[in-house]
Write a protein that binds this DNA or RNA. Structure first.
Length: 138
DNA sequence: GCCAACGTTGGC
DNA sequence: GCCAACGTTGGC
């Protein structure tokens, strides 16, 4: 467990990485897309998760961790979708912007770049390392 | 079960 | 604010 890594998007106006740091943990609910929900279901405790700010910021800003695997989303009256729980790990040394991600050949096939609207997506090991590297070479 | 219309997301 | 991508809905 804890071998895979992921990326989640959030509008900082709605829920920012700083808010997650302040909260200590949060229920990641409200996902209403089946492809994204499949990724939520595949998450294991200990999996690392890049936290991306959409709409404003447009950058990966921090790392979170899965602390509870998928369970029925309390905010979904139909009972079809799931939520997980996330806890903050650390902010990135410097945010990695979408512009820089698009410029990196290593990230050309990244799921979140290929399918723009996907709010939860898998991150390959080499993609994880590349984004970390970029965050340390601002 | 198809497909047009519509709504939402999210980058620009 | 606009628009492209894409998922969902509803008429047939």
């Amino acid at each position: 467990m804890g071998d895979a890594s992921w990326l989640v998007k959030s509008e900082p106006n709605t829920y920012s990485f700083e808010t997650l740091v302040g909260d200590g943990r949060t229920v990641w609910d409200g996902v209403r897309n089946h492809a994204a929900a499949l990724h939520l279901k595949a998450m294991q405790v200990g999996d690392q998760v890049f936290f991306y700010h959409s709409q404003e910021g447009l950058a990966v800003v921090g790392i979170a961790e899965v602390i509870r695997t998928a369970f029925p989303d309390p905010s979904d009256p139909t009972g079809r979708f799931v939520a997980v729980e996330l806890a903050p790990v650390r902010p990135l040394q410097s945010p990695v912007t979408l512009v820089r991600m698009k410029a990196s050949p290593t990230l050309a096939d990244m799921a979140m770049l290929r399918q723009g609207r996907l709010s939860v997506s898998p991150v390959r090991p080499e993609e994880w390392r590349e984004i970390l590297r970029l965050s340390e070479t601002a």
